[in-house]
Amino acid sequence: MDNPQTTKVERNSIGLALSDYRGKASTLCPGCGHNTVSNQIQQSIFELGLPPEMVAKFSGIGCSSKGINYFLQRSFGFNGLHGRMPALVSGACFADRRIKLLGISGDGDTASIGLGHFKHVIRRNVPMVYIIENNGVYGLTKGQFSATSDLGLELKRQGKNFLPPLDLCLEALISGAKFVARSFAGDIKQMKELLKAAVMQNGIAVLDIISPCVTFNNRDDALQSYTWGRENECPIQELTYVPRARAIQVKDFQEGETREVQLHDGSSIILKKINREYDPTDKHAALELLIEAQEKRIFTTGLIYIENSPTNILDEFDLVDEPLNRLSPDRLRPDRAALERLNLSYQ
């Protein structure tokens, strides 16, 4: 029998264990998709070898937004207002540019009340991972339609949804996002690879993760259920994220069937095709893919669109290199001579 004391704990490149990345115990329903996402966030940050103190997490309001409590308790977190997480991140990002920013939201938070902020934070290219834990329903308020609810979905006390769903990947794409992906709580390998790539993207990375609500919207035939999702998932490609430090053996992948997309920091994503050719750097192809998916009810997952992001909003301001929040007062207050010149000019 193994002696527990000799069991080796796996450590990452900075010597931390997976447990260093955990959060508090989840109070979400057992089986909730969001718990899977939280676990994969924990796993991916661990694998990336980032210190938790170099990550900050933000959320709005909803079951999804509660999720930031359940990973990375060693990271600063801000659970803010419904739909308004992007604003918090857009301000905080300037304080210490070394910090990796994670924003967790839901389909209520993003596709309804927060749609304006969502599009504008994308337009600004704030360097953050924007995750929508998308279950097509309002969970925390106990079972109302969201703007991603399937047309025709029936819910108790709500009747039948007569409005077509928004596609948040499409919304992100046309708002100018340079990294758009969709994943599924039932496909954790894909999710983890996408998460790692998203964290390392030098700009906003939008992940629409279908994350079933087992309490309010998990009927076998429902668009955002585990059953339907597993049966119908159409991943575009197989993905592997490769950090810059690790050399990759090209011969591991069959030539002609893989392509490599480089991120700004030198890391890359290796994409292996599954059924058909798909170039995720082609925006027109991405649009067609998503429109077709809407029309034919195809559950497309994977890396939908990626574009090199050599700069992000922080680069527009030519700021000091050090964290802005650590500057001493003498570097923030103009001198007396400056005030005297101003007074003179107003005489």
Binding site: A56, L88, S90, G91, C93, F94, H117
Partner: peptide
């Protein structure tokens, strides 16, 4: 940093995010 944003809710939210982060 002076940033024009999409509405007053964002103006307040961004300022609060920045203030929270120590600016």
């Amino acid at each position: 940093v002076i940033l024009q944003v999409e509405d007053e809710l964002a103006a307040a939210g961004c300022a609060i995010g920045a203030g929270w982060a120590g600016l």
